[in-house]
């Protein structure tokens, strides 16, 4: 394998990691502030993608589609927070797992009811459709570069939001002492709804951004959800920094594992066996990574609990 190809694969891993971060950031924020484990986060990702596809189909504008994904997912998040989720904050994790598992069923089949069983059409805008040439002569899809840039910008914005703004202070206070911020006169239930809607909006945006280069279909959220859980467990639940590091680790492991493992086995096996063994191992690689991290750090890389 050439160096250029390797660099391109690293970029690919980076891009998939950045997208995972958008999912994982919301999950970890919601867990950190409210102590809630939300399996339905993948459904919000799906809601974002479907909203974007519907709006793009009606208006033809990709920017409007992205805005629609943010609004639809945030609205869906706020509604389920007020109707269902807020009853779960003082329950144990088991109840939270089950109730949000039930929400997955409702969201998935509800979406299928509204949009039908076939995948929807959503494409990247024409201006970003082709590849661009990077230094060194690497041809790389412009849209994927945009994803990396947007993702990094959002990550930076999120860090600023939490470090510098009033709501960020409340969020940090909520993470360390939930009773205290209530005593200080912060409207907790409003704060919780805002945080949940923010997490949902990030998931919805990720769904729309990724939906343009993948298939927009019912059930698209669950594989990403499981990956995002792996990310936050590796990074340490509740830590935004952990989510970023975990997401990049998982993205790179997943991408490079699929490429490098078959090659590595090819050194001492015949080609078809190496492909079979390498691919099988690659599909398990991130779970192995997670098991190893937890063995050495049972609360993840940046976890404190």
């Amino acid at each position: 394998m050439t160096t250029l190809l390797l660099i391109e694969q690293v970029l690919n891993g980076l891009q998939s990691g950045i997208m995972l971060f958008l999912m994982a950031a919301g999950l970890t924020l919601i867990f950190g502030v409210m102590g809630l484990i939300n399996l339905a986060h993948g459904s919000l990702y799906m809601v974002g993608a479907f909203a974007a596809a519907a709006v793009a189909g009606a208006t033809g504008s990709f920017v409007l589609a992205l805005m629609a994904s943010l609004i639809a997912a945030a609205a869906a998040g706020a509604v389920i927070e007020m109707v269902v989720i807020r009853r779960l904050y003082d329950r144990d994790h088991l109840d939270q797992v089950l109730a949000t598992f039930a929400l997955i069923l409702i969201f998935s089949e509800g979406t299928r009811w509204v949009f039908g069983s076939f995948p929807l059409y959503l494409d990247v805008p024409a201006a970003l459709a082709g590849p661009v040439t990077l230094p060194g002569g690497i041809l790389y899809p412009a849209y994927r570069l945009l994803i990396i840039v947007v993702g990094l910008a959002i990550a930076a914005g999120l860090f600023l939001l939490i470090a510098r703004t009033r709501i960020g202070i409340q969020i940090r206070a909520g993470e360390s002492d939930r009773e205290m911020i209530g005593a200080l006169g912060v409207d907790i239930s409003r704060l919780y709804t805002i945080v949940f809607a923010l997490g949902a909006a990030l998931a919805g945006l990720a769904g729309a951004l990724v939906g343009a280069i993948q298939s927009v279909q019912v059930g698209m959220g669950e594989p990403v959800l499981i990956l995002a859980f792996v990310v936050i467990v590796i990074g340490g639940i509740g830590s935004i920094k952990g989510a970023l590091v975990g997401a990049l680790l998982v993205g790179l492991t997943d991408t490079l594992g699929g490429v490098l493992l078959p090659l590595a086995f090819g050194v001492f096996m015949d080609a078809s066996t190496a492909t079979a063994v390498g691919s099988a191992l690659a599909s398990m690689s991130i779970y192995i990574l997670m098991a190893i991290v937890l063995l050495y750090r049972p609360t993840g890389l940046f976890g404190t609990v």
Binding site: F31, I37, H93, V97, I226, F229, V230, V233, I237, A276, S279, A280, S283, M284, Y287, I288, M290, A291, L294, L295, P298, T299, G300, G303, V305
Partner: peptide, 30 residues
């Protein structure tokens, strides 16, 4: 032995991850 080193949400997630490992292994094991 591995999972019980963790607790709470970590335990839920690591058992999920082990389940997924078996799942993908079974799918790709010819």
């Amino acid at each position: 032995a591995l999972s019980l080193r963790t607790s709470g949400v970590y335990f839920i997630m690591i058992t999920l991850a082990f389940g997924q490992m078996f799942y993908y292994f079974a799918i790709s094991w010819p």
